[in-house]
Amino acid sequence: MDERYELNKNLAQMLKGGVIMDVTTAEEALIAQEAGAVAVMALERVPADIRKQGGVARMSDPKIIKAIKKAVTIPVMAKVRIGHIAEAQIIEALGIDYIDESEVLTPADETHHINKYLFKIPFVCGARNLGEALRRIGEGAAMIRTKGEAGTGNVVEAVRHMRTIMSEIRVLKDLPKEELMNAAKNMGAPYELVVKTAEDGKLPVVNFAAGGIATPADAALMMLLGSEGVFVGSGIFKSQNPKKMAKAIVLATAHFNNPEIVAEVSEGLGEAMKGLEISEIASENILSTRGW
């Protein structure tokens, strides 16, 4: 189990500095790969459409996931509902590379997340703060992403969550060891992982940004805040020119420290996805509060 978990964390390390794109068809998957995505997330509907159409959002049809897997050589991920053990087993049986236990889908369990150690396939999970991130890692997540607020094209929540996690790590790093148990109690996180995070000054797994990233500048911003890569959901295929937007976000992520390049790739992209103001979303439609 330990060796498998290490291998799964290792795959996330290979994705660092890259962009993971939501795709709904084999054609979109090829566009993503051609643009330089490090992985694709196979979905039936992108988050913006899930938000618009409402209803219960479930795991995608395995047929769609298999078609996408067949189309590309880069890793393929797929989402399952929080706590939905059977959906996770189905996705694992499809032989793809990563599961996202995601708040973007309607949770199957409001109290318990999946025990990810029971699986061979790696999991990525969302988090809004350090305690949540360490709880998911405690359950076996091999990678973390900020939740942000998916399907809004509004980066403000991703920024909030990344800033929160990074700042909580900085605080932890400066605590004397005898204060770490109290910190673990206060954030509801496993003590061993709190100690490890304090010692390393970083999360024990790779940490990406997700939820509302819609432009090359958004991607660069998340990297500047300490993210190790980005997930872009609706931002690409809901923009006016997906090919160009996809390529621009890849370049902005790889060269986030180089404003000239980010400026250059931001030119003439056409319209980005139409964004949503978070305060105008009814509280029952906020996705990031799903899971705990």
Binding site: M14, L15, K16, V38, L251
Partner: peptide, 15 residues
């Protein structure tokens, strides 16, 4: 390094 060869293969061409 290790990573995604298609991604790196494109990025080494761009500049």
């Amino acid at each position: 390094p290790g990573g995604e060869s298609t991604t790196m293969g494109k990025l080494i061409k761009d500049y």
